[in-house]
Simulated scan of single mutants.
Amino acid sequence: MARARNIKPSFFLNEDLAEIDPLGRLLFIGLWCLADRAGRLEDRPKRIKIELLPCDNADVDALLQALHDRGLILRYSADDRPLIQVINFARHQSPHHQERQSLLPAPASFEANGERVRGRPKANSGFISDKSEASPGAIALIPDSLIPDSKTPSSSAVADGLMDGFATFWKSYPRKVGKQDAMKAWKRLKPDADLVQAIGEGLERAKASEQWQRDRGQFVPHAATWLNGRRWEDEPDDAAAQAQHEQWEGV
């Protein structure tokens, strides 16, 4: 079953990744959607082609091997079952909290959640060479701020991004009371893109709840109270929770 995942701008800017066939890059993105919450999936090239590249004349097995050689995925076997581990998947994806745990065994050098075993050399996040983990030219996911030739965002740019996220949150929040207090709570959180999405999804669940819709919303808390209490982490109380997952994706 395909799942919604995130993609960062650094993916399109990396020159090393450009060495991979365009269909290979598209396949790599598609693997994130097929992978479970730990970044693992079955290594079945024919099935993967049907799922991700049904209209293209592509040798998916060769493309998967190219991704493996570049250190982007790990092809391995467990109990005579061919599997794939997407490298650094857990660091860069935020699976929905209702997504079930992985049923596939982790590689020997990885923990159950898809993270590398502590004590082993860690790949830097973004897309840069990591010679300790793979062959020369291997690529590992790294943070956008560490992309070669990229510039560290200025403090004003960070502040602008922070307030853009708050503006989106405030526009969606149903009770327009205590904006300054809510803004202070938001600044204390300093949410990154993943947290902004998690807050947005939690807010949509809360808005759909019976409690918030009761008596014209008189039981909706002030936004600052909701943020300070990290109420977006509350368990959903109705079946509409899953439908809210994609609304805030990409904010």
Rank of each mutant, 00 (worst) to 15 (best):
G217K: 07
Q180V: 14
A223R: 11
G165D: 07
W212F: 12
I199K: 02
T168S: 03
F169T: 10
D160Q: 08
R188N: 12
F169A: 09
V220H: 01
S125W: 05
L203Q: 00
Y173H: 05
P153F: 06
S209G: 10
F219N: 12
F169G: 11
A140P: 03
S132I: 05
W170E: 08
S150V: 10
E204V: 15
V177I: 08
F166Y: 01
M163Y: 03
G161W: 00
Y173F: 08
M183F: 01
S125E: 03
L141A: 10
Q211R: 06
A167H: 13
K176R: 10
Q211H: 03
F219M: 13
S125Y: 07
A208P: 07
K171D: 04
A138H: 13
S150Q: 00
T168D: 00
F127N: 06
L146V: 08
S135L: 15
G217P: 02
R214F: 07
D181V: 06
K151V: 15
P174K: 03
Q211T: 15
P153S: 09
S172P: 00
A198V: 05
Q180P: 02
A167F: 11
A134F: 11
A193D: 03
K207G: 01
Q197R: 09
A182D: 03
G200P: 11
A134W: 08
D192N: 11
R214L: 14
M163F: 01
D181T: 14
K179W: 05
I139S: 10
Y173E: 08
G178K: 05
T168F: 02
V196N: 13
A138G: 15
P136I: 12
R231Y: 00
E201G: 04
G165K: 12
K179N: 00
G202Y: 00
A134E: 09
K131W: 07
